[in-house]
């Protein structure tokens, strides 16, 4: 994927499933010369641990930080875990921004300060979208300098959303999850918030033979990227294991 992607997102116990932490993986990527987007969620740590892990990340050379709320523990594999959420994503952004300014949340001065590039998430196809936009504005005021979105499949609706937030003047990286099958698309439509795969795409996938599926996935993804490219400042491809398709998608979408 080298030469194709600018940075790699490192998820923080995504879907509330226990696994190696995003800080260690981000540090390892840096060792290999790959730029990470370190995701940090409010689910598992209180304000002491969040600030400390941010400083630890800086000590490892991590610059890009994506501050997220985090999926609730009951959605994961440790359903009896205590959800923390001591801070919410806006408060976490503000805390990280304070660290950038050389202070912790209590106002104590740091010996040296980090210089994080802070990001946040927004769900453009939420219904209603107004609370998302209000919160997006709060995130910007709290220090968010870029946004990543939930997966986008409807270029028209995405364009409308981008028009609504035009005055925010903040770079938006649109998300796209590779659609591996019609069944997966249907599953996401009924189970994943903020995702709406149009019927026409589901039909396209349905009419594709199993052998041609990967080819089709590349074609659909590249097409959506070409359609939304004019309205956003970057694309975040979520390949869910089909990583080897990413270079081809990028070529077909004329992103290089």
């Amino acid at each position: 994927m080298e030469g194709y992607v600018t940075a790699v997102n490192v998820t923080d116990l995504q879907s509330a499933v226990m696994r190696v932490g995003s800080l260690a993986v981000s540090a390892r990527l840096l060792e290999r010369g790959i730029e990470p987007v370190f995701q940090i969620s409010c689910r598992d740590r209180n304000r002491l641990a969040l600030q400390s892990d941010l400083l630890s990340a800086w000590a490892f050379g991590v610059e890009n930080v994506l501050c997220i709320t985090g999926d609730h523990p009951v959605l994961g594999d440790h359903t009896e875990a205590k959800p923390v959420y001591d801070l919410d994503s806006v408060q976490l952004l503000k805390a990280a921004d304070m660290l950038n300014q050389g202070k912790d949340m209590t106002g104590h001065s740091l010996e040296s300060s980090p210089d994080f590039f802070l990001g946040a998430v927004v769900t453009p196809s939420a219904d209603p979208v107004e609370p998302q936009i209000i919160k997006m504005k709060k995130k910007i005021n709290a220090g968010a300098a870029f946004f990543q979105t939930q997966a986008v499949y409807e270029p028209d609706k995405f364009e409308q959303f981008m028009n609504k937030i035009q005055s925010f003047n903040v770079p938006v990286i649109a998300g796209i999850v590779l659609l591996k099958s019609a069944a997966m698309a249907r599953f996401m439509n009924s189970n994943v918030a903020g995702i709406n795969v149009p019927q026409t795409i589901i039909q396209e996938l349905e009419e594709t033979s199993k052998e041609d599926r990967r080819h089709k996935t590349v074609e659909i993804t590249a097409r959506i990227i070409r359609d939304i490219k004019p309205f956003c400042q970057g694309i975040h491809i979520m390949p869910l294991g089909w990583n080897e398709l990413v270079p081809e998608i990028i070529e077909q979408a004329c992103l290089n």
Binding site: T69, H72, D88, S89, T123, K135, K138, A193, G194
Partner: peptide, 19 residues
């Protein structure tokens, strides 16, 4: 479900909570 103070997470679907 997450006791958020500054507005909704992205998890609601059809007005229902992600949990």
């Amino acid at each position: 479900a997450k006791s958020l103070l500054n507005g909704p997470c992205g998890g609601a679907k059809d007005g229902k909570c992600e949990v």
